[in-house]
Design a protein around this nucleic acid. Structure first.
Lengths: 214, 214
DNA sequence: GCAGTAACTTAACGATGTTAACTAAACATC
DNA sequence: GATGTTTAGTTAACATCGTTAAGTTACTGC
């Protein structure tokens, strides 16, 4: 009765082939630059074969990004975390910026492109809220730790709000860089300087002056 | 010899008709949602007529945004500016966020979409660096004022770097909101709360503790 | 009157995402 | 072992897109 299993395995193999081909094109060309036909050509299938495995182009690249994000999140969490809660937040911010900088097309598709609202599916639900695989949950966890340790000003008690603001701050640096870094209108300072200043400003703004450092 | 003038006026009239039709569609549908054919249909011209007035779709909407930005910047600067340099920065940040919130499609096209680098033309050069019409120049000016007034920590002397970071901070709030506000993954706090917290954090982070308030 | 300019149209090209109808092979059932 | 069902994959086609090339047509300057 291993027949069904083998068929499923075969199907998921060509599914993976599609994803790999799509990934290779996506990394250099971005969402708009990749066509279903090009993906199909790369694996020597007809364009419509993709629709057996994915509902449409959007879902294909959504799945692609989900996989790659999970893998990168794994790398991220495996790195050592600073013990000091504020330094931990700085660390997370830096990693996040690295990530967005190295995979700009992923970042554009996932965080800079409005998508129609979609109910989370089972696979989403497995990730959501789990700091091991969900970067936002990791951030929220680190923020809560900082609150509990008294590192923030006492009026800052909403971990959700603080997390969303911190996310927005590093997102601002990354996304503005991706969209505008080659715009001659602005004399851009080095990305790293902007990133460090952003982390410096926000963490200073959060810090509880009553709690001395060290 | 007013013939040439009349012809030019007529031409710029249909140019304006194109821009108005494009704008109406653009505001509700966004860049990808508007086609040249739809714009043409709206003004009862053939699609290719547009190419007499604009090199391509990108240029059409670039011009559209340039016009609308200039108009809005006019509104922005006409409002009274707080005397205190830090409050002035907060004021600018709030206006900027209002703007991005009310014209999300403009904002997406101008600040969230990577465009190929293009040399500034004459019209661009007229705007660039002029705080009256260039929002970034206005921000830089306000930052320099704050530096000169000693409102920032003394090590913060690079107005360009500070401006870019402040811009990124509010840009982060706006753009993340546009792209993700309907994502059920995150329990979003109200936009205004996130905006105010961002301004609070960054301005606190900049403030010179040696200079007492008031 | 005649040549020239230029706004505008018609027709078409190549590309896109996607659907409908079909093929062919593997499977389950009798 | 024939028969019907499922399903991965194909071919052909549709509607739409941005854009170009080749007209047309009206007006202008001479």
């Amino acid at each position: 009765m291993g027949v069904k299993e083998r068929r499923e395995r075969e199907k998921s193999e060509t599914r993976d082939k599609i994803l790999d081909a799509a990934r290779e094109l996506f990394v250099t060309e971005g969402y708009e630059g990749v066509s279903m036909r090009k993906v199909a050509e790369k694996i020597e299938y007809s364009p419509t074969a993709i629709y057996v495995h994915f509902a449409d182009k959007n879902e294909l690249f959504h799945e692609l990004c989900r996989q790659d994000f999970a893998r990168l999140q794994e790398v991220m969490k495996s790195a050592e975390m600073p013990a000091d809660p504020l330094e931990r937040l700085r660390h997370i911010g830096r990693r996040y910026i690295d990530f967005g900088t190295h995979f700009p097309h992923h970042y554009v598709f996932m965080f800079m492109t409005p998508h129609p609202a979609h109910e989370p599916d089972d696979e989403d639900r497995e990730i959501m809220g789990n700091p091991e695989v969900d970067a936002y949950a990791l951030l929220k966890w680190a923020v809560q730790q900082a609150i509990d340790a008294g590192c923030f000003r006492p009026e800052l008690q909403d971990a959700e709000l603080v997390s969303q603001t911190l996310w927005a701050s590093v997102h601002g640096v990354i996304s503005l860089n991706i969209a505008k870094h080659q715009d001659p209108w602005v004399e851009w300072r080095p990305l790293q300087d902007r990133a460090e200043m952003m982390l410096d400003l926000t963490l200073r703004g959060l810090r509880n002056p009553a709690k001395e450092v060290r």
